[in-house]
Design a binder for these strands. Structure first.
Length: 882
RNA sequence: GCCCAAGUGGCGGAAUGGUAGACGCAGGGGAUUCAAAAUCCCCCGCCUUAACGGGUGUGCCGGUUCGAGUCCGGCCUUGGGUACCA
């Protein structure tokens, strides 16, 4: 049975020789699972048959599966293996269910690490990046992924970023891009802009200087114009995780509130009003102070003749730009001495404070503080001795004197002791609406809808990114480059020996002629945020060689991405920006309307973690040791060199800087790709983190070896062998088909693998006939094929399967074989399990109850007590209540 | 600070509101072997019991329910994001 029938029609003539090699094992039977030769052989077979080349074919349903493309750090890690294996399982499964599958791969290749490497170790970011890509591609290929490598590209390819520049010009044309001032982290020593991650505890990572917030003119995408659309369209993303949609919803942050003004008393000219936006106008009677941002125009005006105040503002502007840094800083205020009148009562005056926690970016940069119903305001009021006046209470009897801010849910009914609109007892939401209506009627303010989402600043003062294709002309101003002049290519001759953007100091690159008037002009030296690169790569994969950003016919066929897979860390920015880009590309005629939501289904997978081994170096700095440098004893770790004990930090995200990275290549060379793939799928649910353990990988290898020898044994059987238990084996086989199919379709890979273990155990013990066992083995191979494709192909060939297993149709379970006639019901007494009975599946409740109550263990436990109630859940459980 | 998750044996984890711990690892015992490796079989939450059994148990506190790992409220811890890491 080992040999292929020479008459077997094989569709792929080019792989005949490879298949023949596989059958040659009849003459020289391999006694052991030999992963390296199996894997090389089948990768060659797939490559020869061009199995994974995606070609438009309107006669087949298409399926586009995409994993978030990697940053080319130079080494693949287990996180990549996990990510791409999951996508591969889906891709291969879909191929065997008759789909025309697109499964591409590329590189998110611009970004800071390349420049950091150039600064740290010399060399050029371009060389570093392309070398890394070549290395990583070579590391990825042995995994046997079903990728169409002919579509590969890197975002730093000039063919890609040139098209991105064309997109930018289209967006600019359509009014989707504009310039405005925004704050950046400024390192006053290195005289350069820092990324947030380059600011450590308020200081520049290289210079150690205190970082300042400084304003620069920057390019922005008008994503905020699409806030409401991006929000409401979330409702239709049925196959996205609810948590991601919720995070995006909160990020967009739609709110209904009141915009109104406090009139000032004796304020500088032009500042007779302070505009305020509040989502809690119902608490206006609890107002205690007005707070403005240190960057508010009034604050800046006051700076001019108040050195003390100017120093306070200066102090507030120190530190990084992140919301986290600003909001976790100690709350500080400065009493400007100015006062404003309360809109309800002109005799009621409130002080105006500058406060460091108020962001100029959100709302109007000014708030009114209501300490009774806001924890931050409460803290502030307590610190500066400001009044705390409640406007609502939990009950009429509650004391209006508060020990802490009272902040109930807006859906909760509360008693308004300081209300001015609506009922005395009402929910926060009711009160807010009533307050807005009241203020509108009385000409105090206006109900407005605001969004937290800010426009997307895309300017980066860095070299290794896509140049922004505009020109600065002394007569024409900011002028878009002409499309025929694209691509604006990055110059290669740059150095990284001094901080700052090399494009700024390049002797000639900046010089150009104004596309408008032709006079000498200068290029923009800002490059684009790398999120721009990753916001449309999925569309480019449908036509990677097109001389426009996207070929519409290809996009029309392949879009949308049917299954997108990536890390939860991209839940907000990358995915929101991509959703915006799909809209902007549609507006500018670069994507068909059907692709407005580019990702039909999203799956967010967890990280691969590994213990960190840490000790302290001579200079007090932490030293991280590689796993292969330590010995483990009783949960403790000791250095192989010297035996000193090191600290073990369990389950940490694998990170190059922490040296806790397990190199997939070592695993593949020791056990094979199928083992690595099997392990990353088997041990944890895919949305959760998985801890890499050496013993787990070994166990996977042993299991695959066991599967191989079972199949080998079956292939050695006499085809006429009769046996017992055929029906039982085939029943288990059909159950396995059902469960594994469900597992693969629902991303329950670990559960699917548990079923495969179970089915393998059944098969191993089976004494069934050869024909039944062969059927079971071939089905097992098919069910394993998406996960361990090489082993599956090998088994298939050994059993005389037709062609490649990847081309064989996915098995379907026989419903008749899945029906069980009896069920075992546990019997509970007062919710505790006391016994069990086995009854026919469709026995009426009354009879089940009778049998349950006559069960020996039940009678013993009841001990004469009369049941008050018996609950029979058919097919599930019986609960006797006494 | 704010937003979103997660927390179950020694470990990874399983469980449409219905027998908590499937499956795997580690561990223990046994078979095979001159011996080992490999393989195969059995046991394996904790406490208690000679045993049958009983008690207890899903981060903590409380609630809903005949019944809660699962639903609700409040915490704790860990992780992700927080707009220039990708």
């Amino acid at each position: 049975m080992l040999a292929l029938d020479p008459e077997t029609p094989i569709a792929y003539h080019r792989i005949n020789s490879i298949l023949r090699r596989a059958t040659r094992t009849k003459d020289m039977p391999m006694q052991r699972y030999d992963a390296p030769s199996i894997e090389a052989k089948w990768q060659e077979a797939w490559s020869a048959a061009e199995t994974f080349k995606a070609v438009r074919d309107p006669s087949k349903p298409k399926y586009y599966v995409l994993e978030m493309f990697p940053y080319p750090s130079g080494r693949i890690h287990m996180g990549h293996v996990r990510n791409y294996t999951m996508g591969d399982v889906i891709a291969r499964y879909k191929m065997s269910t008759g789909h025309n599958v697109l499964h591409p791969m590329g590189w998110d290749a611009f970004g800071m690490p390349a420049e950091n490497a150039a600064m740290a170790i010399g060399g050029h970011p371009k060389d570093w990046t392309y070398n890394n890509i070549a290395d990583m591609r070579e590391q990825m290929k042995p995994l046997g992924l079903s990728i169409d490598w002919s579509r590969e590209f890197a975002t730093c390819d000039v063919e890609y970023y040139g098209q991105q520049q064309a997109l930018f010009l289209d967006f600019l044309d359509e009014g989707l891009v504009y310039r405005k001032n925004a704050v950046v982290n400024w390192d006053p020593v290195d005289m350069t802009v820092l990324a947030n991650e380059q600011v450590e505890a308020g200081r520049g990572w290289r210079s150690g200087a205190l970082v300042e917030r400084r304003e620069l003119t920057q390019w922005f995408f008008k994503i905020s114009d699409h806030s409401d659309e991006l929000l409401s369209a979330l409702d239709d993303l049925d196959n996205w995780p609810a948590k991601v949609k919720l995070m995006q919803e909160n990020w967009i942050g739609k709110s209904r509130g009141l915009q109104f003004a406090f009139s000032t008393i004796d304020a500088p000219d032009g500042h007779d009003r302070i505009e305020v936006y509040t989502t809690r106008p119902d608490t206006l009677n609890g107002a205690s102070f007005v707070g403005i941002s240190p960057d508010h125009p009034l604050a800046k005006q006051l700076e001019k003749d108040n050195a003390d105040l100017a120093a306070f503002n200066e102090d507030c502007r120190q530190g990084g730009t992140t919301a986290e840094a600003i909001e976790t800083a100690e709350k500080k205020g400065y009493d400007t001495g100015l006062r404003v009148r309360h809109p309800f009562d002109t005799a009621w005056e409130l002080p105006v404070y500058i406060a460091n926690f108020i962001l100029m970016d959100y709302g109007t940069g000014a708030i009114f503080g209501c300490p009774a119903h806001d924890e931050r305001d409460f803290e502030f009021a307590t610190k500066y001795g400001l009044p705390i006046t409640s406007t609502y209470l939990p009950s009429e009897e509650s004391s209006p004197k508060l020990e802490e801010a009272y902040v109930p849910a807006k859906t909760e009914k509360v008693f308004y002791n300081g209300g001015f609109a609506g009922a005395q007892w009402q929910t926060g939401n009711e009160a807010i609406n009533a307050a807005i209506a009241f203020c509108e009627e009385n000409g105090i303010g206006q109900g407005v809808t605001k969004y937290r989402l800010r426009d997307w600043g895309l300017s980066r003062q860095r070299y290794w990114g896509c140049p922004i294709p505009v020109v600065h002309c002394s007569t024409c101003g900011v002028v878009p480059e002409k499309k025929e002049n694209l691509p604006i290519e990055l110059p290669y001759d740059v150095t990284f020996d001094t901080p700052g953007n090399p494009l700024d100091r390049h002797p000639t690159w900046r010089n150009c002629n104004c596309p408008n008037c032709g006079s000498p002009a200068q290029r923009e030296t800002d490059t684009m945020d790398t999120f721009v690169d990753s916001s449309w790569y999925f569309a480019r994969f449908t036509s990677p060689d097109a001389d426009t950003p996207v070929n519409m016919a290809d996009a029309e066929y392949w879009m949308n991405v049917d299954q997108y897979i990536g890390g939860i860390e991209h839940a907000i920015l990358h995915l929101l920006y991509s959703r915006f880009f799909a809209r902007a590309m549609q507006i500018t005629g670069n994507l068909p309307a059907k692709a407005i939501e580019p990702f039909d289904a999203l799956f967010t997978q967890g990280m691969v973690t590994h213990a960190i081994y840490k000790s302290e170096g001579d200079n007090g700095r932490p030293v991280y040791h590689y796993p292969e440098q330590v010995d483990l004893k009783d949960g403790k770790a000791f250095l192989k060199d010297g035996g000193a004990e090191v600290e073990v930090i369990p389950s940490a995200k694998m990170s190059k800087s922490k040296n806790n990275v397990v190199d997939p290549l070592n695993i593949i060379s020791a056990f094979g790709a199928d083992t690595a793939r099997w392990f990353v799928l088997s041990d944890s649910p895919p949305e959760r983190d998985v801890e890499w353990t050496a013993s787990g990988a070994e166990a996977s290898f042993k299991h695959l070896g066991r599967v191989w020898s079972i199949c080998h044994r079956v292939s050695q059987m006499d085809p006429n062998t009769k046996g017992d238990g055929d029906e039982n084996l085939l029943r288990e086989m059909h159950k396995a088909i059902r469960d594994v199919t469900l597992g693969v379709e629902s991303f329950g890979f670990n559960a699917a693998i548990a079923k495969l273990y179970g089915f393998t155990n059944t098969l191993a013990k089976s004494k069934a006939s050869h024909s039944a066992q062969r059927q079971a083995v071939m089905t097992l191979a098919q069910l394993m094929a998406p996960m361990t494709p090489h082993l599956a192909e090998d088994i298939w060939a050994h059993q005389g399967g037709e062609g490649l297993i990847i081309d064989a149709p996915w098995p379907t379970p026989d419903e008749a074989m899945l029906v069980e006639s009896n069920v075992t019901l546990p019997i509970q007494i007062n919710g505790k399990r006391r016994g069990e009975i086995t009854v026919p599946k469709d026995m009426p409740k009354e009879e089940v109850e009778k049998i349950a109550l006559s069960d020996e263990a039940v009678i013993r436990t009841l001990d004469g007590a009369t049941p008050k109630k018996v609950i029979v859940v058919p097919g599930r459980i019986v609960n006797v209540v006494v």
